[in-house]
């Protein structure tokens, strides 16, 4: 499946590029191996693994660690293995198949690949081209707005896998101008945020304000009375959506 972001929503795609993905793939082994052995060896690939990107990749070919979150064997039929894998962005499933083949001793390659999830968007609720064009037709020809709202989602849905920080109205416009977020501007936040994590800054209405990098943990954010909590990476909301409000307390650090 493919996330398509319209107009200003496209600014949010950097979060999706970084997001975990899920695939369903078919791996073909180069000789016969008992299914129990296949499952046993594959279970060892859950967790951090080493990968060097293939020659055809457009990234630097250095050895790097990627995390396999889940690896589930769905079906084994002779030398064909159907499996589901949930992994960190930048994981090459093709290389994973080769490595599994090596671990099994017989060699293997990836026969087929289908992406089933990108961040929050999963193929379970994906819209086909046919359904999409039908909905657009209903809108264009019959004025049915609800049809549009069925096939197009708010960008926030695409970003719902990110931990959030909810901020005061008075802090919003400064963030829209690229300011970093300081503790007094924070109203609510998700637990489990670590420094370096990408977070979504939102208003109390749930609107995406910006993508940011957490500078401190959730626990620290809760305790801090002042100081910076997040560095703005990409502004998503148009400046002026909320008025610039000069409050008596410092809620943001000017850019």
């Amino acid at each position: 499946m493919l996330p398509v972001a319209l107009k200003d929503a496209a600014k949010a795609l950097m979060a999706v590029l970084n997001a975990g993905k899920e695939y369903v793939a078919v791996m073909k082994l180069h000789s016969d191996v008992p299914a129990s052995r296949i499952r046993e060896v594959m279970s060892e690939f859950v967790g951090p693994i080493y990968q060097r990107p293939p020659v055809r990749a457009s990234v630097k070919r250095r050895l790097r660690i990627r995390t396999i979150y889940e690896l589930e064997v769905l079906e084994v039929e002779g030398r064909y293995v159907l499996f589901r894998v949930a992994c960190e962005a930048g994981t090459y499933v093709r290389k994973l198949c080769v490595d599994i083949g090596n671990a099994l001793g017989c060699g293997a390659h990836m026969q087929e690949l289908r992406r089933t999830r990108v961040g929050s968007f999963s193929e379970d609720d994906a819209v086909t081209l046919h359904e999409f064009s039908e909905a657009m037709f209903l809108w264009r020809e019959l004025g049915d707005e609800k049809a549009v709202r069925r096939v197009i989602r708010p960008v926030e849905h695409m970003l719902s896998f990110l931990p959030r920080i909810v901020i005061r109205d008075s802090a919003v416009d400064a963030i829209c101008h690229g300011a970093q977020l300081a503790a007094p501007g924070v109203l609510k936040l998700h637990s489990g945020i670590e420094p370096g994590d990408m977070v979504l800054i939102t208003t109390l209405k749930g609107e995406a304000v910006a993508l940011a990098e957490a500078l401190v943990s959730s626990r620290e954010m809760m305790a801090m009375r002042k100081g910076l909590v997040a560095r703005t990476l990409r502004v998503l909301m148009k400046p002026g959506t909320y008025p610039r409000m000069w409050s008596s307390r410092e809620v943001v650090k000017e850019p």
Binding site: V4, K7, D8, S122, A126, A208, L236
Partner: peptide
Amino acid sequence: KPEERPLSEYIRLGAINLD
């Protein structure tokens, strides 16, 4: 609220989960 955006705004900040 995102779901309550008027249509032009909804589309301007819209994303499609496309099969």
